[in-house]
Nucleic acid binder design. Sequence first.
DNA 1: CGGCAAACCTGCGAGC
DNA 2: TGCTCGCAGGTTTGCC
Length: 284
Amino acid sequence: MPELPEVETVCRGLAPHLEGRVLARVVQRRPDLRFPFPPKFCERLTGRRVAAVRRRAKYILVHLDDGTVLIAHLGMSGRMMITPKSHDGEPAEPAAHDHVIFETDDGTTVTFNDARRFGLMDLTDEAALNEHPLLRTLGPEPLGNEFSGPVLAERLAGRMSPIKAALLDQTVVAGLGNIYVSEALFQARLSPKRMAATVSGAKAERLATAVRDVLARAIAAGGSSLKDYRQASGELGYFQHQFSVYDREGQPCPGCTCDVAKTGGVRRIVQSGRSTFYCAQRQR
DNA sequence: CGGCAAACCTGCGAGC
DNA sequence: TGCTCGCAGGTTTGCC
């Protein structure tokens, strides 16, 4: 799925098409995604003007002019696709797994498509946003000012799980997923198997820096496209070409000069049910 | 409370 | 060709 860089890229793609526009028509094509849609979902959005498109962790937040906020999560396979106004005036036939269609007052269409339906949408309002159950427990934004080595160290203190699992925990730091955790640990030269509590001081500083750097580079590349992910414009992301370890089992580690025939190159292990990729020579 | 496996759902590629 | 299996970018739940 879309991790923080992919969601950020989607938000940046949506903003110029939605901000300042009125939602003229909203179509909900099934009763639920991961959760049921909230009552009167379409009615509450139709006719509202979009004030801003923002992001918190992996959530897309669409702020409306009456204080309503649409919270959307892309899950593993969710996409937002922008379609300009068609010239023949005929609305396009919905594709498989097109679940929600937003049409603005200039005829632009934003379609939410999600084959696996791990995504979700909910409505809340501005005043209650930070207390929303989905957002309340999130850790700091890794690209924000409230994130640093000492802050990370404090949040990892006392944790007996592997650092890999701790970084996937959205209450520790918000927005990392399976790809960028592997990449950040590689860049920080820390073993994914290391106990989280041992990442303090200079190691935590290194890791915090690596997290920010990897995320910033991924956003600059438009995110990573493996199979499902597309930018809202339909373009692919390009960060997958810059992966150091993710999905590179057996390939040479870009930081090592050692012989792949001897070391086996990048290793893949399974931690709490999910693949982790790392270099055993470089990461300790 | 902490940590882990399983569950949610669909699609795709590999192997037989 | 067609089947089965394993795996996939996330999050929650339930069990120890």
